[in-house]
């Protein structure tokens, strides 16, 4: 069965083109507690919340060009919550002075039959992992401190092995395109987390090779 041609049209989500502004960093396991303490002080005073998610990354390969990637995520701690399908675009090149990585982002809440649907469409699962950790909020900013774990037996989220001895820290904001004040806010927030964690603009496409 031949794979359908991959669309070359830009992907947008509805009328408002949302962008994800992202800063990333990591901390060692030992430093986790002090980072969480700091985050609790800085972020909106809500009860700190933990999460355990299972993410599946799907590829749709065309005849030529890069494969089309979609990420399907479900919450293991909230089994009734809808699945989350996410498309992330290539990081925007351009303004070097911008403090955060900016990429196109489409978020869709879906029903639980998402994996079957993607398979029917011709997508194939590339890899999967379990992410658990803590989530914080400050205004529109979201701070996620994640431990990533490899899944040893495909499909079994119980049998996992941690990938590293550190936590991934991500600071992200969803905003319509062209709101550069957002990255300014993110930078000042990242400043306040130093030296516990250095949040930087990391281009994932450059890391791959």
């Amino acid at each position: 069965m031949e794979a359908p041609p991959v669309t070359v049209m830009p992907v947008t989500g509805g009328t408002i083109n949302m962008m994800e502004y992202l800063l990333q960093g990591s901390v060692l396991d030992q430093a986790l507690d002090s980072l969480l303490h700091r985050l609790r002080g800085l972020c909106d005073n809500m009860e700190p919340e933990t999460f355990t998610d299972h993410e599946l990354v799907y590829l749709l390969k065309g005849q030529q060009g890069n494969p089309f990637i979609l990420r399907a995520r479900r919450s293991l701690s909230h089994p009734t919550a809808p699945w989350h399908l996410r498309y992330l675009g290539q990081p925007e090149v351009g303004d070097k002075s911008r403090h955060a990585l900016v990429r196109n982002c489409v978020d869709v809440a879906t029903s639980h039959s998402l994996p079957e649907f993607l398979n029917e469409m011709g997508f194939r699962m590339d890899h999967e992992f379990v992410a658990n950790g803590h989530i914080f909020r400050k205004g529109a900013m979201k701070v996620v401190v994640t431990k990533l774990s490899r899944i040893l037996v495909p499909g079994n989220t119980e049998n996992i092995e941690r990938l590293s001895l550190s936590y991934l820290v991500e600071l992200s904001v969803l905003a319509p395109a062209g709101q550069d004040t957002v990255s300014e806010d993110m930078r000042s927030f990242a400043e306040q987390l130093k030296p516990l964690v250095h949040l930087e603009k990391i281009d994932p496409s450059k890391q791959r090779h």
Binding site: D44, M46, E49, F51, D53, E55, R71, R73, R74, S75, S77, H78, A81, W83, H84, R86, D107, A109, A131, G133, I135, R137, A140, K142, V144, T146, L174
Partner: peptide, 12 residues
């Protein structure tokens, strides 16, 4: 209304 989203990548 500002509950934390689950899964964590979902928007607020």
């Amino acid at each position: 209304s500002v509950l934390m989203p689950h899964p964590a990548t979902a928007p607020f």
